[in-house]
């Protein structure tokens, strides 16, 4: 009983210490440790915010088994960069359509951040951002992916993203006929 109580107290102390720190430590699936600004992590990721608020952050590295080290490095890099950037007017600019939620255009540094990534790294980052509930990072990565598709034919898109065509000839023809207007330029 005595021992248990002592352990509980020690945990309390550790949690207080954790709460006082400016950063949290995250551990990738392959065991690498990354430090990230606590404020930015909580602001940008609903999952990390929940873990921080719930006290389930491990001082020795919170396990994120679903995320590889390369993707986690990008996530952490993004959070830390975001911690230092001030939102510009572009972030607040509203969308043209009044029926859909306004999409906020990526900022210059966010564009550059995703532009330098390989396709594989971009894909892993999208999955990581999705897993961590990082809405803003998802906006930025989805924007990048949509840019990669613009003006491309289905064949070209499949090539860019290494996607196998799982349609039969007949099925494709059906789509083309159903949406005849869309394929005039092909």
């Amino acid at each position: 009983m005595e021992v248990d109580k002592g352990k509980g107290e020690a945990e309390e102390t550790r949690k207080v210490a954790e709460a006082d720190r400016d950063t949290v430590t995250l551990k990738s699936s392959d065991g690498k440790l990354f430090e990230v600004s606590k404020e930015a992590a909580a602001r940008l990721s609903t999952v990390l915010a929940g873990m921080i608020a719930g006290g389930s952050i491990d001082d020795n590295g919170t396990d994120l088994k679903q995320i590889g080290s390369e993707a986690l490095e990008n996530v952490v890099d993004y959070c830390n960069k975001h911690a230092n950037s001030i939102p510009s007017a572009a972030l607040i600019s509203s969308s043209i359509s009044f029926n859909t939620a306004p999409f906020k255009e990526p900022e210059e540094w966010e564009r550059k951040f995703v532009d330098r990534l390989s396709h594989d790294a971009l894909f892993d980052l999208v999955e990581a951002a999705n897993f961590l509930g990082m809405e803003r990072l998802l906006d930025v990565t989805c924007h990048k992916i949509s840019e990669m598709m613009k003006g491309k034919s289905p064949d070209q898109i499949r090539e860019v993203f290494n996607i196998k065509n799982d349609y039969t000839k007949e099925e494709l023809e059906e789509i083309r006929q159903e949406l005849a207007w869309a394929f005039y330029d092909d």
Partner: peptide
């Protein structure tokens, strides 16, 4: 996520997106 991506594309490219897979 695919829905988010499609939402960022002009309408005219939606059929090409659909024809990918």
């Amino acid at each position: 996520l695919l829905v988010d991506i499609v939402d960022l594309l002009p309408w005219s490219s939606h059929p090409r997106f659909a024809a990918v897979c």
